[in-house]
């Protein structure tokens, strides 16, 4: 029988305490090889080879239009939904060949959650927003659903705020609360990877701070890939940083490395210029 979600990907071996053990070698979970994407004839980014470490927070930075968000959508094959979108190259998630037509995208997207720039809860109640995807993935046990509801909402720090109005519409929440609900919704499916597309940019500074703390707290338990325009934020939260830039009419990966290395000893002149705020 096909066991729906085999539990191998949740082995605790890659669980790492948030502060990281000294001398622990990060191992790549996602690797892209010469990944390119074009909308029709318009290339979005070209030939990006990037590796993303397990349990780390990787920030993608760079000016608008350099293909960061497009890159993100390749990792969970959301590109399938975009008309005229053409992807080439390879993406590996552990052993899985992500772009292969044989890959079950629904299972893939369960392993790779995504948070969008604009909070996008469903027009349902708060409870339904969390339970509906779980039920669709075959979890119907009432007790377990309630348990997950409680723990994920606690995880995102929303439980105290919404516990009395779980049945009220999610769209009535504030922007920051909606975004945290969306994170809870993604976390409830216990994904390995979380893709975040500027999750704070549509929020006010206060909510943005709350969400940022939340992201930091995910370190070690999840592999996070976050697109951000906020360099200070990238510096605060990221373990690794990758810089995208528009060159020759298309987005390209300029430099990647640990946050420390990129911010303190940038190798490429564009990186140096960008982090010093001269360009971009």
């Amino acid at each position: 029988m096909n066991q729906p979600m085999d539990s191998t990907h949740r082995l605790p071996s890659w669980l790492r305490p948030p502060d990281g053990l000294p001398g622990h070698q990060p191992s790549p979970l996602i690797q892209t090889e010469k990944l390119s994407l074009a909308y029709g004839t318009q290339p979005a980014f070209d030939s990006v080879s990037l590796s993303i470490n397990r349990g780390c927070i990787t920030a993608l930075v760079g000016p608008s239009g350099s293909g960061k968000t497009s890159f993100l959508t390749c990792l969970n094959r959301l590109t399938d939904l975009i008309p005229r979108c053409h992807v080439s190259g390879r993406v590996h998630l552990g052993e899985l060949d992500v772009l292969s037509p044989k890959t079950d995208v629904l299972q893939l997207r369960r392993r790779v959650g995504m948070i969008f720039q604009k909070p996008n809860p469903f027009p349902l109640s708060i409870r339904k927003n969390l339970e509906f995807p779980l039920r669709e993935h075959g979890m119907t046990d009432r007790e377990h659903l309630d348990h997950l509801l409680l723990t994920t909402l606690q995880d995102v720090g929303l439980w105290a705020e919404v516990k009395d109005r779980l049945e009220s519409p999610a769209l009535a929440l504030s922007g920051g609360q909606q975004q945290r609900l969306c994170m809870a919704r993604a976390l409830a499916l216990s994904p390995e990877v979380l893709l975040m597309d500027e999750p704070c940019s549509a929020l006010d500074p206060l909510s943005s701070g709350v969400v940022e703390d939340l992201i930091t707290s995910l370190r070690g338990r999840y592999t996070v890939v976050i697109v951000t325009h906020n360099l200070a934020q990238a510096r605060r939260i990221a373990d690794d940083v990758a810089l995208f830039w528009v060159q020759h009419g298309t987005g390209q990966l300029i430099e990647q490395g640990s946050s420390k290395q990129i911010f303190d000893h940038p190798q490429h002149e564009l990186t140096a210029a960008y982090i010093n705020g001269i360009r971009g």
Binding site: L81, Q107, G113, M114, F116, K118, F122
Partner: peptide, 21 residues
């Protein structure tokens, strides 16, 4: 479009997305 994208990102099938959302 948000509904479709967020549903897809949660690994929901298109059938479910269609009938429920």
């Amino acid at each position: 479009t948000d509904y479709r994208l967020s549903a897809a990102a949660l690994g929901l099938s298109r059938f479910t997305t269609l009938t429920h959302l």
